[in-house]
Design a protein around this nucleic acid. Structure first.
Lengths: 291, 291
DNA sequence: ATAAATATGTAATTAAATTTCATGCGGGCG
DNA sequence: CGCCCGCATGAAATTTAATTACATATTTAT
């Protein structure tokens, strides 16, 4: 059975393949989950414009034993003030509204990701990265920053790590891959041409290809190991804001996984790295100008 | 209305002046609240060795409208899913435990940030960025990726945007700042020497300095506008994982703020930018429903 | 185009919770 | 010491809510 925590994230994740009535119910629940916990099945049904049994079935489909049970789940996944249902920023928003909207959207994306973490793929990816002789992180546009971040993090291991955004370099390096090389391609949509083509080159070169992208996308199909994430619908309509955050957290997960796999020496190495940063830091307090 | 959160604490507080039956009920509920949320009034009554109406009255005495309502309260004070309080990854963690720990930590950091969003500074920063002739995003190490991301996002406006990680370039550009230039320095600790020194140079050059850093840090003291965030966790002991995520969300907020300030033309421009990305994408495949 | 499968709604049924009312227990006061 | 009052408790009745069973509509596949 599925994880019963975060029904809201679960609903959001399921939004794609829901029936008409279920969609209506989901919308009502996501719009105001707090109200839903107090509503009777009749009220909720009426608000969604569906019949009571539909609501009941909706609950069961999500794994609850029935409506009251569902309400309990809902109540348990309700946390301090964070709004569910991705909120779109509109021109009427003010400084008091849009910042928290954006934060909420990000939190939601993470909660959603948390429900659907591809543990298997992560484990596999960690293994690949752990044993890799050389690692490449490739992403363009927004994902370039993610690749850069990954490079920086993996740089702390002894393995050689490379990032590039230049399409030509990207292709050349990808084509020149060999056994022992691991290529990580990062793309929210999984349909960025240059990335997909590079991934194909890398795959044909005999190297290992890991994809951090949307499930079922062209990029995903070319890869040996897919860190697939289903991000909510509207992300694509807008700038990829939340997806890159999720990607970064996945990077954290991979780094942590490899660190754990390395055991004591790796952890010590991290400590040493931290040590080496100290001279670049200023002492705790210091006085400077103020306008 | 009453304090409906923390029913458990409420019960414990009331333990002193409860009747015999109420005491029995309280004990059962406190012993295993989680089970109580799933039990029917009949089962709970039986477990406590009291009658059903007694349970009902118990609930009402606590302020609930009845037993089901009480269960909701109970469930809400029982936080599920996301764990609060930062959790440290330790060597005994497995693939089933550390990924969600990391996600949870990130979510927590965001929830914390959400509570303490420096609205005033954000508004000010948005104004500065909106009217800037040139914008520089500077960060090193992990923050370099954040700066890169910011550059990429602001690039979509007409303003000239620059990022650099090379210390020399950083100093040169900072020293050469002039009125109309806006420098955004990004540093989790606010004590990275090269960044603080560059910020000082920029400040003395007459340009505007915005800092995305810890409150009260040396970097913060040098800046005209501090986007201060308190990340009180162990980030400094370890790799900065959560802080950069928060920084990225702040970047999102700034981008959004500037976009809103620009009004319709800016929003249209964003739409056009999105449009221009389409040719680089491979065609989308048809959507499938449940198998 | 038609049959099978799936989704949805109506009405009947069952389960659950609440109210009403009767009983029991303990404490003050004649 | 006993009688009565008030509060706590439980049994049964009532009401309310949720679920199941079944009929109808809608979609999907052949």
């Amino acid at each position: 059975m599925k994880n019963e925590s975060n029904v809201l994230a679960q609903i959001q994740a399921a939004l794609g393949d829901l029936s008409k009535s279920d969609m209506k119910i989901a919308e009502v629940v996501l719009t105001d989950p707090e109200a839903a916990t107090r509503a009777s099945i009749a009220i909720l049904a009426q608000q969604a414009g569906v019949s009571e049994p539909s609501v009941n079935r909706f609950c069961k489909r999500l794994g609850a034993t029935g409506y009251p049970d569902f309400k309990i789940w809902l109540a348990r996944s309700l946390v301090s003030g964070v709004q569910y249902m991705s909120q779109v920023v509109d021109p009427d928003d003010t400084i008091d509204t849009y910042p928290s909207k954006l934060v909420d959207n990000t939190i939601n994306a993470l909660m959603l990701a948390r429900e659907n973490l591809p543990s298997g793929a992560i484990e596999q990816a960690v293994n690949y990265l752990h044993t890799a002789q050389r690692i490449y992180f490739f992403g363009v546009g927004t994902s370039a920053a993610v690749a850069r971040d990954a490079e920086h993090k993996f740089f702390r291991f002894q393995t050689s790590v490379t990032t590039h955004t230049d399409p030509l370099m990207l292709r050349m390096l990808s084509a020149g891959g060999q056994a022992g090389d691991v290529f990580v391609f990062i793309s929210h949509t999984g349909r960025t041409r240059v990335i997909v083509e590079a991934a194909e080159l890398a795959a044909n070169s005999g190297a290992t290809v890991i994809a951090l992208t949307a499930e079922g996308s062209p990029l995903a199909l070319t890869s040996d190991c897919v860190l697939g994430l289903n991000t909510p619908e509207n992300t694509e309509d807008y700038l990829p804001m939340t997806s890159r955050i999720v990607h970064l957290v996945v990077i954290d997960i991979l780094v942590t996984g490899v660190t754990l796999k390395r055991g004591a020496p790796g952890i010590e190495h991290l400590a040493k790295m931290k040590e080496s940063l100290l001279p670049t830091r200023l002492p705790k307090q210091k006085k400077r100008r103020k306008p």
